[in-house]
Computed example of a mutant assay.
Amino acid sequence: MWGGCWPAGPLRRSAFTRRLSVPISAPEALLTVRGLEAGYGKIGVLHGVDLHIAAGEVVTLLGPNGAGKTSLLRALSGLLPWSGGSARFGGLELRGVGPREAAQAGLVHVIEGHRVFTQISVTDNLLLAGYDLPRAERMARVEEALSFFPEIAAKRHEKGGALSGGQQQMLAVAQGLVRRPRLLMLDEPSAGLSPVLVDRVLNVVRELQARGTAVLLVEQLIEKALGAADRVYALAQGRIVLEAATSEADLPRRLERAYFGDDAVSPLEA
C-alpha cells in the first residue's frame, strides 16, 4: 500500500531516460537551474538537473527516497558543493555561494526535521534567525513570523524543547520566515505531523504565495503537495523525469509512467 508516500525500491531504467512532458515556460523566473551536478565526495547524486521557479509560484518536488530531493535543496542553499552546472537566483549566481549569502539574498532553506534550539525560548530562536538584522527590525520580523502560527505565538516565552513535535516544526518554518524569503525551500515539513498540523503548515504556504513569496516544497504526501502547488517536478535517481502543471487532468497517469511504466498503479489512486 502506498499510504500517500513514495515507496522505496528500484525504478525501471526506461522511466528516467526520457522526459515525459513538455517543459513549461515561466515568465520572469526567480530561480533558473541548468545542468546542476552535485554529490558527496566521488558519489554523484544529481545529474544535470534543470528547473525554474517564478516569483510567487509554489512548486512541489516529488520522488522516492534516495532520488536526490534533499541533495538538490542542499546544493541550491550552499550546503552541498557542485561539480557542474549553473543557477541564478534573481541576479545572483548560486554556484559557489554559501548558506549565509544565499539567505541574505532571500533564498531560505528550512531543512528536514525539527532543527530548533531546545534550551532557549521560542522568541530567542526566532531572534537568532535574524541575527544580522538591526534589533528593531528583528523584533518586527519575529512578530510577523509568529502571526502565521498562533499556536507557538502563545508559547513565545517557553523553551523550544517544551514544544510538541508539531510545534517545533512550526517554529522551524517560522525561523525561515524571519528572513522574509523571496523563495522558501521546505524539506518535508509534514514529517511527524498530524493531518491537522500538516494542513496548517500547507495553509501557511498558500498565505506566503498570496504575499508574493515563492515556495519549493519537497513532500512525501503526494495529494497534499499537489494540492498546494502550481507545478510539479518529479525526480528519480538524480534526474528530472517529469515537469507538469498540477492542474493537468492526466497528471496521475503521467506520474505512473514517469516512475513505474505503463502498467503501474497510480500513487494517487492506491
Rank of each mutant, 00 (worst) to 15 (best):
V218E: 03
G90M: 01
Q104N: 12
G68R: 05
V265R: 10
G161D: 04
E37F: 14
A154V: 10
G66Y: 04
A229W: 00
V97G: 04
R253C: 10
L46V: 12
G166F: 01
I152M: 03
Q209W: 01
V33K: 04
Q167D: 05
L202G: 11
R135W: 13
A145M: 04
A258E: 05
G176F: 00
V97I: 15
Q119C: 03
H109L: 08
I111H: 03
L127C: 08
L183E: 02
R200L: 10
L242S: 07
G84S: 12
G130K: 01
L268C: 14
V241Q: 07
E207N: 01
L128R: 01
R19G: 14
L208G: 02
L80F: 04
L217W: 00
H114A: 15
A102C: 14
I152D: 02
V198Q: 00
E101V: 14
R231P: 13
E223F: 11
Q175L: 12
G98S: 09
R138F: 05
G35H: 06
N65I: 13
R253G: 15
M1G: 15
L36Y: 06
R141W: 06
A249F: 00
V142P: 02
A15P: 10
E143V: 08
E151D: 13
L186G: 08
E256N: 13
F260N: 06
R95M: 11
L36P: 10
L51F: 10
Q167L: 10
L128P: 07
S190D: 05
V116Y: 03
V59D: 07
L186K: 03
L183W: 02
S25K: 07
L76D: 04
V122W: 01
L235G: 04
Y40V: 12
V215S: 09
P27D: 13
G238S: 11
A225H: 03
L11R: 09
R138A: 13
A55Y: 00
S71E: 11
V198A: 07
A8N: 14
S77V: 08
V33T: 07
P10V: 14
R206I: 12
D187P: 12
V265K: 03
R253H: 14
P181D: 06
P81L: 12
R19W: 08
M185L: 15
L171W: 01
A249I: 09
